[in-house]
């Protein structure tokens, strides 16, 4: 059984994206182990003289390194990824690069009708940058709209079509993880490249 890290893209106490990941953790428990990861409490990202990464981010990087893949649930703020999530990703692409070649599945929930679609598109672009260089599962949006009313009291998704879609996507993601293992021709080079990109901004 594969182990996955599920990053909550919100730093707020209440988040429907966290709810979505909690649902996935419980719902997919028979087939996969999913551990939720929080991004709050990280300091605001800033370059620093000795290239230090906060302890919390190093811990996160270790867990991501060890995981078979990462699921990210992103809210949408101002048509884009939250500052808090961008912040976490900056720390996770500075002195450490746990995302390089890591399979990633993007999901997202929003209060409105669009289900964080613009934030998800944005997140793809970010994860594709040279220091992150994750392997995001292609054409696989899971957009949970009207997220405030999407769950029942026990935390299950109310809409059956949504459940079915998510089941299918997760199955695909598990296959994607397997396939990605074979796409390792550039693996070692990718790691080096990602590190070098960051070196360039060293004064």
């Amino acid at each position: 059984m594969n182990k996955y890290i599920a990053i909550v893209g919100s730093n707020a106490d209440k988040s429907t994206n966290r709810q979505l990941l909690q649902y996935m953790k419980q719902h997919f428990a028979p087939v996969a182990e999913i551990e939720l990861m929080e991004i709050k409490d990280l300091p605001v990202y800033a370059k620093n003289a000795d290239r230090k990464t906060p302890e919390q981010a190093l811990e996160m990087a270790k867990k991501i390194d060890a995981a078979a893949g990462v699921i990210i649930a992103t809210p949408e703020y101002d048509h884009s990824v939250t500052a808090a999530l961008l912040n976490a990703l900056s720390w996770l692409s500075y002195s450490v690069h746990p995302f390089v070649d890591k399979p990633v599945m993007i999901v997202g929930a929003s209060y409105g009708a669009l289900g964080s679609s613009r934030a998800q598109g944005h997140l793809r672009q970010v994860l594709d940058s040279p220091e992150l260089k994750a392997r995001v599962m292609p054409s696989s949006d899971f957009l949970l709209s009207h997220s405030l009313t999407a769950f029942d009291d026990t935390g299950n998704l109310i809409d059956a079509d949504n459940t079915k879609l998510l089941d299918g996507l997760f199955q695909d993601f598990e296959k994607f993880v397997e396939i990605t293992k074979q796409l390792n021709g550039t693996l070692s080079q990718d790691k080096v490249n990602a590190t070098n990109v960051s070196w360039q901004d060293k004064k």
Partner: peptide
């Protein structure tokens, strides 16, 4: 440009101001 987008610090400011 950080990771193909704006820095988290700038995004945070815009979020406060929206």
């Amino acid at each position: 440009e950080h990771n193909h987008t704006i820095p988290a610090a700038l995004k945070s400011v815009i979020e406060w101001l929206s």
